[in-house]
Design a protein around this nucleic acid. Structure first.
Length: 126
DNA sequence: CCTTTGACTCACT
DNA sequence: CAGTGAGCCAAAG
């Protein structure tokens, strides 16, 4: 074993996500969000046990763009606002996807957000 | 290698 | 009651 490659280019962060990364954990939770439900960055961060590193969840979403099974549109900020809508290619893409899921969005904010709020720390308490 | 940003949140003033 | 600041961890420049 001692054969260590000097090159660090053994992984492409764009197409090969690691399994033990903080990001993978986030994606795993997001994938379990039921249709018609939404969650927040803080809720996911808390579920991960990292305190409130909600910012990292946002970063994970940025990398999640390469994953087809990660409905990042279901992840909104604490106010239920589509803060990341501008990162979907088009400023209305996130809104359209949410409405397609049965989630009403008005003025970039999820309607009845508190009612549609899906908390991983409660739903995934198992 | 070190610095700055980043799709956030909570707390204090 | 509202606004500003600091905290958080990681990746990109």
């Amino acid at each position: 074993m001692a054969a260590k490659k000097s090159s660090k280019t053994n992984i492409t962060p764009q197409a090969l996500p690691r399994q033990h990364s903080f990001f993978e954990n986030v994606w795993d939770v997001v994938r379990q969000i039921p249709k018609g439900r939404v969650t927040t960055y803080g809720a996911i961060a808390k579920y991960l046990g990292s305190g409130m590193s909600a910012r990292m969840v946002g970063w994970a979403m940025n990398a999640a763009h390469v994953l087809p099974d990660v409905p990042a549109q279901r992840v909104v900020n604490r106010m239920g606002m589509l803060s990341g809508k501008m990162h979907f290619g088009t400023p209305t893409r996130m809104e359209e996807l949410l409405q397609k899921d049965g989630v009403a969005v008005q003025e970039d904010v999820v309607v009845d957000f508190a009612q549609r709020f899906w908390d991983p720390t409660i739903e995934l308490v198992l």
